[in-house]
Design a protein around this nucleic acid. Sequence first.
DNA 1: GTACCTTTGTGCTGTAAAACATAAAGGAAG
DNA 2: CTTCCTTTATGTTTTACAGCACAAAGGTAC
Lengths: 229, 229
Amino acid sequence: MKNKEEVLSKLPDLASVLTASERRQVLSVMKVETFKKNEPIYSEGDVPSHLLCLISGKVKIYKDGVGGRAQIVRVLNAVEYFGFRAAFAGEDYVTSAAAFEPSVIACIPITLIQDLVMRNARLGWFFIHRLATALGKSDARTVGLTQKHIRGRLAESILFLKDSYGTEDDGETLSIKPSREDMANLSNMTTSNAIRTLSTFAQENLISLDGRKIRILDEPALQKISRIG
Amino acid sequence: MKNKEEVLSKLPDLASVLTASERRQVLSVMKVETFKKNEPIYSEGDVPSHLLCLISGKVKIYKDGVGGRAQIVRVLNAVEYFGFRAAFAGEDYVTSAAAFEPSVIACIPITLIQDLVMRNARLGWFFIHRLATALGKSDARTVGLTQKHIRGRLAESILFLKDSYGTEDDGETLSIKPSREDMANLSNMTTSNAIRTLSTFAQENLISLDGRKIRILDEPALQKISRIG
DNA sequence: GTACCTTTGTGCTGTAAAACATAAAGGAAG
DNA sequence: CTTCCTTTATGTTTTACAGCACAAAGGTAC
């Protein structure tokens, strides 16, 4: 995985919209880094310097709020680009990123990417599409997190994780194993309430729990709980 | 204001990055529409068909949540583009837009804009910059609205309105006169609590109220309330 | 003017969720 | 193995806020 040509071949869309010479440019300056579980990737206030691409692993993007409580605003699955929003907005990072699981990340200087975007309209469109999709999700999340009650928010988070990371072969067990605190930070609630409400869901046979494994038993019911709030 | 050349001259950045022939294309298909106070501009579920540009007036972008409670996710001031996110993401609208005040809006078919974006990288960059900025604000808003207490959220909204729409000549009176319900929909609270908390702020001499006019008397104090939540 | 409807204002009540308090279980380090 | 620290679990208390109910004020239509 440290082979850069191999990594570049995994970069979807990006490689495909570049010319051969642009691809060579990217390759020559690209760095590949690995991150351990829970290791920080960047932090709020940092100056963005690279376009990042999650080659393998799982990453959470979060914001620290009042009283040190974190809110996870996005989760990333391989293969996905991130870290470019702040640079494109001309801002410092307003969020932090950390590895949910051991992760491999390709880093390309953002200045090079900006140059390429100014010259290659297809590459520009690639980022427009991603930003537009993320903005729609963020707005939807704002409303879901603010207006729904605890059960609705937790149900939403469970379905969100299934949607983002998929399941094991059984089609029911989430392939991510989040801590209770992660669940709380996803769902805008205290850890106590995440634990309590997960237990309640298990008692109601909506899910089953085995340590950090979450198995969805009754998805339609969860969807209903999420929908009505 | 119905003069289209005059309107196009007001479209910042957009006109400046276009070639003369592109400008002619835009002009030939552009429509200018007016909206009355509180008139809907588009609704959740509609298929996006035009890039919109607020020429004059004020607009709110909102989402209807559980129990018919609306959350205002963005407010627009002249001159600002909107309505393109859904089209660029390949989705139907997930928000609704309505005029806060009587407004004039220029409409350009989004298919034309997409064509231009694919050919003109500078135009692409223009939208990237806007989307990236909006996404950062949306994420910040999510955390502010979910984690802060009522007083913090209301203080944040008052400062948000000052930031977005500015003040009268006195530098203190907000130039937008929102209903109490608008304040509630901005701040994620019930109308009763918006009324109550605004009154409390007035009693504490943080603001003064005269009907729908809001005058900021102690901005540092409001900032502190907003910050600590 | 009068009638009617919407918006604003205020008090009261119920409750969802935070805060706090412990304790048990699970992991990591020695 | 034992020790220590983190995570999970559950019960109790407190409180912030939603949900009424109702009254006053302000607009609009006639």
